[in-house]
């Protein structure tokens, strides 16, 4: 009996398919001749079957995978097509919901970001054309370098799943990944492209702390707008600034200012944003928060050109889908 008890562990291994050769043959022979071991084997099998059924129920009852994973299957299928076929498929995928995409440039960018940015690193290269640059020049007056020139491109790098990085570059197809230092903000942190490591390095902003309120990662219009107004001093010079500190702000030791851009001409409706609210920490004299109250009055004047590229660290982006948005 003692010997047979010792066989239990080996019976388990036998049923698991982990015995081979002579050892397996000897044990099988023993079980055939030993009723006690045969009974043990049957019990082991029953336990095993019950456990398997229970575990299968667990797997069957698993919740759906997170949204960031689910659409990947479709994307993976597109990738599998390879080359031109994949590009064509992506263009089609963008073109199908055209009516919705054309609701606004923000929607174009947002849609593209939602579609692609959740799966992997992608870049949206957004070219703002037409009157936008002229408008921004008028907003910023003499300091024209603060406004993007028509040929400049807002590069929006979406690092899945949460980061949104952006940078303005005049030559997006140039060798910027290797010999041009890049830097920018993702709304709360500064980042720099490290050409040696071929990666993005985050650094705390120098002397400035900014948070964009209400932007849940991919609110790209806010980021884009903010990209235009990185020179805050100039922005303030061009705007009327009125203190709007409320009682709760005073209790929290904050000063809040309402910032209203002054139109170049009275009645000019072509504005990116109508106002912004800056929260200033008087103790540190830093702007803690800037909330842009975005108006879309001007966006119908824009032509947005969005290109979607997959970013593979250290490699040039591969372009999938040139896409033009020309609002009515």
């Amino acid at each position: 009996m003692t010997d047979c008890r010792d066989q239990e562990e080996r019976l388990d291994a036998l049923l698991d398919g982990e015995l081979a050769g002579d050892e397996r043959a000897a044990l099988l022979e023993h079980v055939d001749a030993c009723p006690a071991c045969a009974e043990t084997r049957d019990e082991l099998e029953r336990t095993r079957a019950a456990l398997r059924r229970a575990f299968a129920r667990t797997r069957a009852g698993a919740p759906p995978p997170p949204a960031a994973l689910r659409p990947r299957k479709r994307r993976a299928a597109l990738f599998a097509l390879g080359g031109l076929a994949a590009a064509a498929a992506l263009v089609l995928a963008l073109a199908v919901p055209r009516a919705r995409l054309d609701a606004s440039p923000a929607a174009v960018i947002q849609r593209a970001a939602e579609r692609y940015g959740k799966f992997t690193d992608v870049e949206l290269w957004v070219r703002v054309e037409s009157q936008a640059a002229e408008l921004l020049r008028r907003v910023f007056g003499a300091k024209q370098e603060s406004a993007p020139a028509p040929e400049e491109v807002q590069r929006v790098l979406i690092r899945s799943p949460h980061y949104v990085l952006m940078q303005k570059t005049p030559d997006p197809r140039g060798p910027w990944r290797t010999d041009r230092p890049l830097e920018g903000f993702d709304g709360s942190r500064a980042w720099k492209w490290d050409p040696e490591k071929r990666g993005v390095r985050f650094e705390p902003p120098e002397g400035l702390s900014l948070k964009v309120e209400g932007a849940e990662g991919n609110d790209l219009l806010q980021f884009l707008s903010w990209g235009f107004v990185r020179d805050l001093g100039q922005l303030q010079a061009e705007c009327t600034l009125a203190e709007a500190t409320g009682p709760s702000d005073e209790r929290a030791g904050r000063r809040v200012f309402r910032l209203d851009p002054r139109p170049p001409e009275e009645g000019d409706r072509r504005w990116f944003w109508s106002s912004a609210v800056l929260t200033i920490d008087p103790g540190r004299d830093l702007i803690e928060k800037m909330v842009l109250d975005v108006t879309l009055a001007a966006v119908s004047l824009l032509r947005i050109h969005v290109e979607v590229a997959e970013v593979d660290q250290g490699m040039s982006p591969r372009f999938f889908s040139p896409r033009y948005h020309i609002p009515e």
């Binding site: 797997r59 919740p63 990947r72 690193d121 899945s160």
Partner: peptide, 25 residues
């Protein structure tokens, strides 16, 4: 090979199994 693609595909395959493991723990 983009490792994220590989990870996503494997993660989708393993999701129910991984959930079961976490659940039973």
């Amino acid at each position: 090979m983009n490792h994220r693609r590989e990870v996503v595909e494997e993660a989708l395959r393993e999701w129910p199994g991984a959930f079961g493991l976490a659940f039973h723990l």
